[in-house]
């Protein structure tokens, strides 16, 4: 039985696509047949982050409209086995995503995949609503910043009222918090919301904390999901996140400041 996971946030630019790419890659690395779908019709970017932008021929909307079949549109990842990408359409508008069409495609994908990761667009318009409607679980990506936390709370309300599970009275969508772009030093100084602050406000279980890291930009420059960047803090944090999602009980890393030497503290840096 396939599990549908939406990666959502409400606010834009908090790391949904980065998280979708690394999360899906991590699941596939661990042997699960995984597909990641870009729901951002008109503004597709998952293909760039995954580094397969030049291999896009058909897209999600083509499949919904019956203009191509799944095998023609799915892009097989060249680095990780078991991983496929379904790109969004760049030319249509969000109205092209119909509930019936999305459901049909998801049902087809359920036949061949164990995890279906839906990369939601920002906002609460049709693309975002369709990305979360069929979800069994949700990764809510939040930055430690007021507008992001507020928008995440709004999205949690929508998950609880407008998902299929909510409408049909099934057990609710399982919610996970992904706190991204976290700077433990700043939280420690009291000028950034801490992990505890965000958890207290949103009240959902913490799946992972992704530290603010230069590697995220570097990996997007080269089209490599950051989880594949061995040794980078953000990559390691995403690895932990995937393991926790799959049931491992791992302590959270990167939530306390790294010890700095006396001179470094005196003269700044970091």
């Amino acid at each position: 039985m396939a599990t549908v996971i939406v990666v959502t946030s409400g606010k834009g630019g908090v790391g949904k696509t980065t998280t979708s790419a690394s999360f899906a890659t991590g699941l596939a690395q661990r042997g699960y047949r995984t597909v990641v779908i870009d729901f951002d019709v008109g503004l597709r970017n998952l293909d760039l982050i995954m580094g397969c932008e030049r291999r896009v021929v058909y897209d999600f909307v083509n499949i919904i409209n019956g203009e191509a079949n799944l095998n023609q549109a799915l892009i097989r990842d060249k680095r990780v086995e078991n991983l496929h990408i379904l790109p969004a359409s760049q030319t249509r508008d969000k109205e092209a995503l119909t509930k019936e069409g999305v459901e049909r495609v998801l049902n087809d994908l359920r036949q061949s995949f164990e995890y279906i990761v839906c990369d939601s667009p920002a906002g609460i318009e049709r693309g975002a609503l369709m990305a979360l409607y069929f979800a069994d679980e949700a990764l809510v990506v939040t930055n430690p910043e007021v507008s992001s936390v507020r928008d995440s709370d709004r999205i949690l309300g929508i998950l609880a009222s407008r998902s299929r599970r909510a409408e049909q009275g099934d057990p609710p969508v399982k919610e996970h918090l992904v706190l991204a772009r976290y700077a433990p030093e700043r939280a420690d100084r009291g000028d950034m919301l801490s992990v505890e602050d965000v958890l207290e406000i949103l009240g959902i279980p913490l799946l992972g904390v992704i530290p603010e890291s230069q590697t995220v930009l570097q990996s997007s420059n080269s089209g490599v999901p950051v989880i594949l960047e061995d040794g980078s803090d953000a990559g390691v944090a995403y690895g932990d996140l995937v393991d926790r999602f799959l049931g491992k009980n791992l302590p959270h890393r990167f939530i306390t400041p790294q010890k700095k030497g006396f001179l470094k503290r005196l003269f700044g840096g970091g």
Partner: peptide, 29 residues
């Protein structure tokens, strides 16, 4: 230099952020 060294003198704006969020989130819920 001193602000950097004596962390306690840093601005505690996170506490204000938390308080504002708790109010607005409770209201919207």
């Amino acid at each position: 230099l001193f602000e950097n060294f004596f962390r306690s003198s840093a601005n505690k704006s996170a506490a204000l952020a938390k308080e504002r969020l708790q109010i607005i989130v409770a209201h919207e819920r």
